[in-house]
Amino acid sequence: MAERKEAHFIIENQVEELAVLFDKIEELAETWQWSVPLTMNINLVLEEAVSNVIFYSFDDERKHEIIIYISIQENELTIVISDDGKPFDPTSAQLPDVELKTEDRPVGGLGIFLISKIMNSVSYTRKNKLNILTLTKTI
């Protein structure tokens, strides 16, 4: 059985921290030998999920930590994103109708839609005052 690989990153709830996250993912992709398209997709999924947390989970002005766990077992990639903000379930958002014409397309809602298309499963739980978003993908 293939060895389980794990990594985790902690970032603060600031938009600028996304750049730090991208660098860490690029490094991880090199170590774990991901293809360029896989790296781009994981980067994208993390940006969409983590920016949602940064924009919507916190009402106060304080610093918060967002913890991102990434693991691979066999060919299953799992990403868990955890934060201590207010309850926020991104899976409850209404997904955009991508068939609509330009004039009728709303400009929001694409982030969670892209996540759901790229990953095989997306689930949310609230536990011990933490938002926990779990994403899996067969690679």
Binding site: N43, S51, L114
Partner: peptide, 20 residues
């Protein structure tokens, strides 16, 4: 262009709405 997220797609969509 080697990466775009929903933030970038949104700008394209708004631009298209303006040009129509």
């Amino acid at each position: 262009l080697h990466y775009i997220s929903s933030s970038g797609l949104r700008v394209f969509l708004i631009a298209q709405k303006k040009t129509l």
